[in-house]
C-alpha cells in the first residue's frame, strides 16, 4: 500500500453546474498537504466527495488501498467551525469522546477507556483544564483545538481538516500546526483546506491548487509558482519573489 488516498477522474456537480471537474491525484503517506484555491473553488466539496458525503458524477476514490466505505473509521474529519451550532448542550470532553464513536459497536456506549483517551487528546491540544466547559464558552481557536482533539481521539491514518486556521488566535494556530507536523512524522496523511496564501510554504509539504479543476499538485516548491497560483485565482493575485522568499499580493 503505497498511496494513502488515490483519486481518479473525479467529477461532482450540483444542480447542473460543475463543482469539480476531472480531478486525479495520488497522495503518499507521511505528508501535510494544503488544498488551496479561491472561494467557491470546490475545496470543501473535494474533501466531502473523497469521503463519500456528496455523490460524485464520475470517478473513483480509494483510501489506504480500499474503497472509502471500508476504511471510514481510519479517516478523521475536522469540520469547518461555521458548520457547528455552538449553543448545543455539550461539554468539551463530550465532543472529544465522539472521536471514539467510529470504533464502538452500534449499541455500545463510550466507557472509561474512551474517556481516558479523550482526556489525553485534550491534554495534547492544551485544553484539558477546559474539559467541563460548554463548547460555546471557548474562543474560536480553542474550539478548533477541541475538534482537532476529537480527530486525534479517532486515531485515524488520514486526516481532513476544513479551514482549521480560519479566524483563530496565533497561539492556537501554532499548537495546531505543531500537532499536525507531529502526526505527519508519525506517518499520517493530512489534508488541510486553507485559503490564506501567506503561510502556505511554511506549513505544508505538498500543495494542491484547485479551482474546479486541478491546477497543480505536488511538491510545494513546484506548485507554489506565480503562474499557477495566478491561474487558480483567476488572475486576481500576484506573487512577487526575491531572495528572502515569495510575497503574495491579492487584488
Amino acid at each position: 500500500m503505497n498511496s494513502a488516498v488515490q483519486v481518479k477522474n473525479l467529477s461532482v456537480s450540483y444542480y447542473g453546474h460543475t463543482a469539480l471537474e476531472d480531478i486525479s491525484f495520488e497522495a503518499s503517506p507521511k505528508q501535510l498537504i494544503g488544498i488551496i484555491g479561491p472561494n467557491g473553488a470546490g475545496k470543501s466539496t473535494l474533501i466531502k466527495a473523497i469521503m463519500g458525503m456528496v455523490s460524485k458524477n464520475d470517478g473513483e476514490v480509494t483510501a489506504l488501498g480500499q474503497s472509502i466505505s471500508k476504511v471510514r473509521k481510519r479517516i478523521a474529519y475536522v469540520p469547518q467551525r461555521s458548520m457547528i451550532d455552538f449553543d448545543f448542550p455539550v461539554l468539551v470532553e463530550d465532543v472529544v469522546v465522539m472521536g471514539s464513536y467510529p470504533h464502538l459497536k452500534w449499541w455500545k456506549r463510550p466507557g472509561k477507556k474512551e474517556r481516558e483517551i479523550a482526556l489525553d487528546c485534550l491534554r495534547q491540544v492544551g485544553m484539558l483544564e477546559y474539559r467541563k466547559r460548554q463548547i460555546g464558552e471557548l474562543s474560536g481557536g480553542q474550539q478548533q483545538r477541541v475538534f482537532l482533539a476529537r480527530a486525534l481521539a479517532q486515531d485515524g491514518d488520514v486526516f481532513f481538516l476544513d479551514e482549521p486556521f480560519a479566524g483563530i488566535d496565533v497561539s492556537s494556530e501554532n499548537i495546531i500546526i505543531d500537532l499536525l507536523r507531529k502526526l505527519r512524522d508519525e506517518g499520517k496523511t493530512i489534508f488541510v483546506v486553507h485559503h490564506d496564501l501567506s503561510k502556505v510554504e511554511e506549513y505544508f509539504d505538498s500543495l494542491m491548487l484547485l479551482n474546479k479543476k486541478l491546477i497543480g499538485y505536488g511538491d510545494k516548491a513546484k506548485v507554489f509558482q506565480p503562474d499557477l497560483v495566478s491561474e487558480a485565482y483567476n488572475g486576481n493575485i500576484a506573487m512577487l519573489s526575491d531572495e528572502g522568499g515569495k510575497m503574495v499580493v491579492t487584488g
Binding site: K48, M51, M53, S69, R72, K73, I75, Y77, P79, M83, I84, D85, F88, V90, V95, M98, Y101, P102
Partner: peptide
C-alpha cells in the same frame, strides 16, 4: 444532531 457532517463522514 450536533455535527451532521462528521456523522456522515463516519458512515
Amino acid at each position: 444532531t450536533f455535527d451532521p457532517t462528521m456523522a456522515k463522514a463516519i458512515g
